[in-house]
Amino acid sequence: MWAFIQKLRSPKWFYAIGGKCQPWFWAAALGLIALGSVWGLAFAPADYQQGNSFRIIYVHVPTAFLAQSIFVSMAACGLAFMVWKIKLADMAASVMAPIGALMTFVALYSGAVWGVPTWGTWWIWDARLTSMLILLFLYIGVIALRRAFASLEGGARAASVLAMVGVINIPIIKYSVDWWYTLHQPASFTITGRAAMPMAMWAPLLVMVVGFYCFFIALTLTRTRSEILRREGGKRWVRELVEEGADGL
């Protein structure tokens, strides 16, 4: 484990490793998402109650999962940066934040759209959607705080602390919102709460979720490598690498 942390301290090693396994993740993401989309849209059975608007689940659930996982991984990177002083972790965290915010927004949008055919309004204060909305505000807070500091270093540390404070609050917020929702609308049908789904329905969902996670890993690898180029431009190995001519992306 300790050797791994030592390796992580050098962006040079990560840049090389990232370059090698990045194409694999992009390919996996493309393949899985394409397969999941076709399977979920065309072949999966429609829901007996909601009809075909149920197919939005194949987009809403993966983005919702990613939204939460990205915040947790951002907080983990923040912890690694604050405790073990791994600069690379902060580069990854600063790159993940916008991705997470975008995923949360899309999850919110698809959840709201999903509610329209059944409720007739664009926004319903469903427990999960409300938690998702609060998560979006947490993301915006972390991004705004990182950019508010004049020095890169100060912004990085402040954002790491806020990410860690935020990740502790996510479960608290989630349970208090669920409790609040059941208090005010006890017996209503929650859009995203599902009884057990038949295999034909959840199989494409699993493919889509794995596809989205591969997409996230691939995207983070690529963007972190760009961040390394931006931040470590002065270093010798970066200059030599760039001077060798177009290296593999």
């Binding site: 989309s37 849209l41 429609a46 009809g51 075909n52 608007s53 197919r55 939005i56 987009v59 809403h60 983005t63 899309v106 949008y109 698809s110 759209v113 999903w114 329209v116 055919p117």
Partner: peptide
């Protein structure tokens, strides 16, 4: 099945 607007809106944005 009549839900085209919603499904394609959600999928399109994603």
């Amino acid at each position: 099945g009549g839900h085209a607007r919603y499904v394609w809106a959600a999928w399109g944005v994603t």
